[in-house]
Nucleic acid binder design. Structure first.
Length: 646
RNA sequence: GGGGUGGUAGUUAAGUCGGUUAUAACGCCGGCCUGUCACGCCGGAGGCCGCGGGUUCGAGUCCCGUCCACCCCGCCA
């Protein structure tokens, strides 16, 4: 039987030792974080998940009266100090290297006032080692296990088990645990049942691309990995479970981003006999609890009523250019389309082309195809011309972006440094008044396709806000702004004029708009809502259709005929006719929420084993080529030849 | 599918106009050191300059292709 672990069990985590433990005999296990060798005396920083403790191997050390007072030793009738054992420990200290895994037995002593390290929780004490063992002589790691490292992400991912030893990632994953635990206990307390849904599902066209899994038992057929439990959670409602939740993996085979992984985790919720407000109340309670338990912030200070503000989708797009406004700062956009129409283009040919289309009836103000909009960079920002041009340059990544017309407001309201030479004085003054600008402000105009104009100005607003220091480049900066964005349009129009569901085909139109389904689908809004935190969408959901007749109307707008509807969603449609309660729900992006709470800016830092931009696990090498025999068994033939060297 | 940035020692980077033996810091190895905590000091090893082709007397450097990583657009609620 081994001396350590079998006989000597861990008494403390390294990081939890304090001055109150002075005089205790302790057994610590951990990784060697640093080694400082002074010849006769070696200091090791021993690290485990709770932190770091300094352990000392001292050639000349012999136990004193302090040690003899340790009652535990007397009780075991065992000597604390054996000089042979201590010699072998000293030997170990000379050999030991970073990231070796060792165990030590020793006594907690005070470091002496001069040697206290205030930066460590354990900085007052150290452990005098009487006995030690090596569990694993680690190879030199490819990068240092330190809080801040400059190492490229692909190397960190390849050695993820080492990367995860770093304190920031340990903290993040611990926070993730805390989020999970809090969600479970809160939702369970609220009467929701944690129920599971299949991962292997039926492929459904539309929405995200599915990962496919060949079926061995059913030659030539495939499962799809669930992109979300959407349909199943609605079925739970039809089965009468009333309130459901699940912390669930979802899979989407789309291109990846900083904030997108092919598999990710949702906090999935669905409830029966509820309206939008019921969902909001539950989620607001959940967020208050999660923020409290993770120590992120006291939301009561921001939202004493317990409610988050609400804003219509239309208002959000008008004021901020998108449906996920960052409310930590102002600098709102100003819609100028109607003003431009009143001024018949204001002498600007590009604007006149747009206003003419409104006058001829080709465009409608309720759902404008093109708009005129402006954003003001305040004079106080005092950006140089190269800086202003840098903003414009970074907008070029927006597809369809044509350019940014700037005008600097001079004394008396004149526009200088501007390409808009032909503007009429009346329009110029009217714009100045609408924007409330004064000397030195820079007006940034966008005219053209609504989506492009909004995307460009939304990005410009964020870029300027960051450059002005109103918000940090990344992270929360201690500010938390939550918001419900509600009632977006139910449909989007495709290039060819046909209609697509903006969210999914089972979202309920707002009651007053049901009549518009036949006549004017563009204006139909729906009971959909997004929860926005500091400019990130952290969750979204909707009240679902439970009336088969309205469902049928929605399908007909979408051009989905009975036959294909049956094909795609047959079981759900049948279930809807089998006794469907009014119901709705929401899904929270668990990874993204944890990322924001932790102050991070990449999803990869809150996911234990993430994949690269190409969806590759550089550690295991997945995905890989498989043997022909395996493919045969699955009744699959591969057309592409993968490069085996990759 | 498209655009951008990058790839040089274990890691992070420098490398001029194409020219001698490719630099530095950290890490690593050896030595010294009893109060350090990013210990310090002395010495040393370490390179397919992503890969393939081309131009050239000569390529880390120029050209073409390709692979990988990151960021973005499309896509993805």
């Amino acid at each position: 039987m081994a001396r350590f672990i079998d006989d000597l069990q861990r008494t403390h985590y390294c990081g939890e030792l304090r001055a109150s433990d002075l005089g205790k005999e302790v057994v610590l296990f951990g990784w060697v974080a640093h080694r400082r060798d002074f010849g006769g005396c070696v200091f090791l920083d021993l690290r485990d998940r709770e932190g770091i403790a300094q352990v000392v191997f001292d050639r000349t050390y012999t136990p004193t009266g302090e040690v003899s007072r340790i009652t535990a030793l007397a009780a075991r009738g065992e000597a604390f100090w054996d000089s042979t054992v201590a010699d072998s420990a000293q030997q170990l200290a000379e050999e030991v290297r970073r990231e070796w895994v060792i165990g030590v037995r020793g006594v907690v002593v005070h470091r002496g006032e001069k040697n206290v390290n205030p930066r460590l929780g354990t900085g007052e004490i150290e452990v005098r080692v009487a006995e030690a063992v090596v569990f694993n002589r680690a190879e030199t790691p490819p990068f240092s296990v330190e809080d801040e490292i400059a190492t490229d992400e692909d190397i960190r991912l390849k050695y993820r088990y080492i990367d995860l030893r770093r304190a920031p990632l340990q903290r993040n994953l611990r926070m993730r645990h805390e989020v999970n635990q809090t969600v479970r206990s809160y939702l369970s307390d609220q009467g929701a049942l944690e129920l599971e849904t299949p991962i292997l599902c039926k492929y459904t066209p539309g929405g995200a691309r599915n990962f496919l899994v060949p079926s061995r038992l059913n030659a030539g057929k495939f499962y799809a990995l669930a992109e979300s439990p959407q349909l199943f959670k609605q079925l739970f409602m039809m089965s009468g479970f009333d309130k459901y939740f699940q912390i669930v993996k979802c899979f989407r085979d789309e291109d990846l981003r900083l904030d997108r992984q092919p598999e990710f985790t949702q906090i999935d919720i669905e409830m029966s006999f509820v309206c939008q407000d019921d969902i909001f109340r539950l989620l607001e309670g959940l967020m208050f609890r999660v923020f409290e338990k993770t120590g992120a912030a006291d939301l009561k200070a921001h939202y004493p009523s317990g409610e988050f503000p609400r804003m219509s989708f239309a208002e959000s797009v008008r004021r901020f250019g998108n449906d996920k406004p960052d409310l930590r700062f102002g600098l709102e956009l100003t819609e100028l389309t109607e003003l431009a129409i009143a001024h018949d283009g204001g002498g600007l040919p590009l604007v006149k082309a747009i206003t003419d289309s409104f006058k001829s009836g080709a465009y409608r103000l309720e759902v404008p195809a093109e708009i005129v909009k402006a954003f003001v960079i305040p004079a106080s920002a005092n950006f140089s011309r190269p800086q202003l041009e840098a903003f414009e340059k970074s907008l070029r990544e927006i597809k369809g972006f044509k350019g940014l017309a700037r005008a600097k407001v001079a004394d008396g309201g004149a526009w200088t440094q501007s390409p808009l030479k032909t503007v009429t004085d009346e329009f110029r003054l009217a714009v100045n008044a609408a924007l409330g600008v004064s000397d030195g402000d820079v007006i940034c105009f966008q005219f053209g396709k609504t989506d492009v104009v909004n995307a460009a100005l939304a990005k410009l607003r964020l870029d300027v806000g960051k450059k002005m220091g109103l918000i940090p480049e990344s992270g929360h900066g201690g500010q938390w702004r939550l918001l419900w964005v509600v009632n977006p349009p139910l449909f989007e129009q495709n290039e060819d004029g046909t209609w697509a569901a903006a969210h999914h085909a089972f979202t309920r139109p707002v009651d007053e708009h049901v009549a518009l389904l036949d006549s004017d689908p563009a204006r139909v809004l729906c009971y959909r809502y997004d929860l926005v935190l500091n400019g990130f969408e952290i969750g979204g959901g909707s009240i679902r259709l439970h009336d088969p007749d309205v469902q049928q109307k929605v399908f007909s707008v979408l051009g989905i005929h009975e036959e294909s509807a049956k094909n795609m969603f047959g079981f759900l449609l049948e279930a809807l006719r089998s006794g469907a309660p009014p119901h709705g729900g929401i899904a929270i992006g668990m990874d993204r929420l944890t990322m924001l709470l932790s102050g991070g800016s990449t999803l990869r830092d809150v996911i234990p084993f993430p994949k690269t931009n190409q969806g590759v696990d550089t550690m295991s090498g997945a995905p890989v080529v498989v043997a022909p025999a395996q493919l045969d068994e699955l009744h699959v033939a591969v057309a592409a030849s993968a490069d085996p060297a990759r």
